[in-house]
């Protein structure tokens, strides 16, 4: 079991899950604000960049590609 925070809210995931996997496992389907509405995972394999999040202060991390690490601080991104 791992614990991460998403905009300061604690979420639990399974060891080895990607950040997208943890978010979806917690019932979230969208976590980035785009001009035409919120986005989450689309391609799931690192190509589309729809699922970008800020991780431990670093922007532009593909949630579907980054394995979640216990204690990760994840923040939503707002961009067009």
């Amino acid at each position: 079991m791992i614990r991460i925070t998403v905009d300061a809210e604690p979420l639990e995931g399974r060891d080895g899950q990607t950040i997208a996997g943890v978010l979806i496992g917690a019932g979230r389907t969208a976590w980035r604000s785009a001009q035409t509405g919120d986005r989450g995972v689309f391609c799931g394999i690192g190509v589309c960049h729809d699922c970008l999040v800020t991780v431990n202060g670093v922007e532009g991390v593909r949630a579907c590609q980054r394995e979640a690490v216990d204690g990760d601080r994840v923040e939503r991104e707002v961009r067009a």
Binding site: T29, A30, A34, T36, G37, D38, R39, G40, V41, F42, C43, G44, I45, C64
Partner: peptide, 10 residues
Amino acid sequence: TLPGVTTAGA
């Protein structure tokens, strides 16, 4: 573009 739509591969 609605959340909940993914590729089949995703």
